[in-house]
């Protein structure tokens, strides 16, 4: 393809090709601090392309392709090329990665132990992870957490954090503007702005962490904590995993082990500060 770049996030080496220069330039800026290995073959390929040659210039719209394709995925305008790249990368990992059990969950770590937060979009798992990652936690990822079936450890996937809507202002107030991507206003997912993880989180991205606490956050309502049984946590995590079935017995073993060894809670919280307070309280118990 005309323009391309290579990005390594956690264990995944991406190759991203584009019919336009802009999305690649934007990616290169966001991922400039990530380790580069130009000779490493790609595990996953993302293509950003124009459906017809003239659509590169005329009302340019970005189609998302690659190793795996969602047939009815709608194209995005070129101004949202960075979002298209992010969606393409997510898609390839979600559908193609087989080495680890993939959880649609954010994670942060402290002292080699991981807090994993799983929830639908809108649950605030991404924002909580971003806020914790600006404190004394290591951000492991805002979207995917990988579980190594052999060891049971959590592995990081610290892509650029995708901040949405109100979370943008909440996080932007606390970080150097150089760590923020361009504001993508009015996307199908609302306003989006990417946050480059802290350098220490990127440097530590290959360090595994032992799962110590599983949270299922829900944004809104009074602050509350609900202990969750192993069975329910198991069901929720199968639903949060894109490759649980494909991993066969290895996935089954990894997931039963995870829910047995890791205390799980559902939490509700009215705002970020309350959410952080609940997390720290539960962590203090779990880490004891």
């Amino acid at each position: 393809m005309r323009h391309s770049t290579r990005i390594a996030v956690g264990p995944v080496q991406f190759r991203i090709g584009s019919d336009w220069a802009a999305p690649i330039a934007a990616l290169d800026r966001l991922y400039a601090g990530y380790p580069q290995d130009e000779a490493r073959p790609a595990d996953a390929t993302v293509r950003l392309f124009a459906a017809r040659p003239w659509r590169r210039w005329l009302r340019p719209s970005v189609h998302i392709g690659g190793d795996f394709v969602v047939p009815d995925a709608l194209p995005l305008p070129l101004s949202m090329g960075l979002l298209a790249a992010e969606m393409g990368m997510n898609l390839q990992v979600a559908l193609g990665w087989r080495r680890h059990m993939l959880l649609h969950a954010s994670a942060v770590a402290k002292d080699g132990r991981a807090l994993i937060m799983s929830g639908e979009s809108g649950s605030g798992k991404s924002t909580l992870a971003a806020l914790l990652g600006e404190g004394d936690w290591r951000l492991m990822g805002d979207e995917f957490t990988l579980i190594d079936p052999a060891s049971g450890d959590a592995l990081a996937f610290p892509r650029a954090v995708s901040l949405k809507n109100e979370a943008i202002a909440a996080v932007a107030a606390r970080v150097d503007v150089a760590r923020l991507g361009p504001l993508l206003a009015g996307t199908p997912k609302g306003d989006i702005r990417h946050l480059i993880p802290r350098a220490d989180a990127i440097a530590a991205m290959h360090e595994p962490a032992r799962p110590a606490l599983l949270l299922f956050p829900r944004f809104g309502g009074e602050a509350s904590i609900e202990p969750m049984g192993e069975g329910e946590a198991f069901v929720r995590l199968t639903e949060a995993s894109t490759n649980y079935v494909a991993l066969g017995e290895a996935g089954f073993a990894a997931l039963t082990r995870l829910v047995r060894e890791t205390p799980a809670f559902g939490i509700s919280y009215p705002d970020g500060a309350a959410g952080i307070a609940l997390v720290e309280q539960l962590w203090a118990d779990a880490a004891r």
Binding site: G229, E230, G231, V245, F252, T256
Partner: peptide, 22 residues
């Protein structure tokens, strides 16, 4: 079949079908 009790439910992995039954 592989049985793994998880609290009040039992997860059963069927090696022939590669399916999990709760």
């Amino acid at each position: 079949l592989r049985f793994e009790p998880l609290g009040e439910v039992t997860a059963i992995f069927d090696r022939r079908s590669v399916q999990t039954h709760l």
